[in-house]
Amino acid sequence: MEGLRLRVRRDGDEPPTDRAVFDDDNVANRMSYDQRTGIRALVVAIFDQAGNRPQQLEIELARAGERCQGLVSARVELSENAVKNRFGPYIAVLRVVFDDLSVEYLQSVLTLRFSYE
């Protein structure tokens, strides 16, 4: 996220100061390289679609027993078809690396839920 915030700064804007990633249990480190890369690619695509200024982007990671749970939520002002076209390839990759990925797009909010060991 810090690298993406630097992109905003290079564009001459002030990056948002509110926290976007909530990982109080430090479980991001438990993701595999492929899982982290897939999430990062999706987040970069969301930043690109929003002109480096995504609205209401949040990533929440937490321990849930022996597994970890994750949630990515972002407001994207696109039609449902445009969301499928724009983010479909990233979601397809995430379905491979997270076996229980669920995706929802309601009222302009794209939400992905997943878990990992």
Score class of each variant (00 low, 15 high):
Leu57Tyr: 00
Arg40Phe: 06
Val27Arg: 05
Asp11Thr: 06
Ala82Asp: 09
Asn29Arg: 11
Glu80Ile: 10
Val96Leu: 14
Val83Met: 12
Gln107His: 11
Gly88Lys: 13
Gln35Trp: 01
Ala20His: 01
Leu101Cys: 08
Val72Cys: 06
Ile91Cys: 00
Ser102Lys: 12
Asn29Ser: 15
Val21Ser: 02
Glu80Ala: 14
Val44Thr: 08
Ser102Tyr: 08
Pro16Ser: 04
Arg7Asp: 07
Pro54Ile: 02
Val96Gly: 10
Val44Tyr: 07
Ala45His: 03
Ser108Ile: 01
Cys68Met: 08
Ala74His: 03
Asp99Gly: 13
Leu61Arg: 04
Phe22Leu: 10
Gln49Phe: 11
Asp25Tyr: 10
Ser32Cys: 01
Arg10Phe: 12
Val44Lys: 06
Gln69Asn: 13
Gly51Val: 07
Glu60Leu: 05
Gln55Cys: 10
Asp25Gly: 06
Ala64Tyr: 04
Ala62Met: 15
Phe114Trp: 02
Arg95Ile: 03
Arg86Trp: 02
Arg36Trp: 11
Leu78Ser: 08
Ala92Leu: 13
Phe87Arg: 02
Thr111Arg: 11
Leu6Gly: 10
Leu110Val: 05
Ala41Lys: 09
Asp99Pro: 15
Arg36Ser: 12
Arg53Trp: 00
Leu78Lys: 08
Phe22Gln: 07
Asp13Ser: 14
Asp48Pro: 00
Val103Gln: 04
Asp100His: 11
Gly12Arg: 06
Ala64Cys: 05
Lys84Trp: 04
Asp23Tyr: 02
Ala45Trp: 00
Glu58Ala: 13
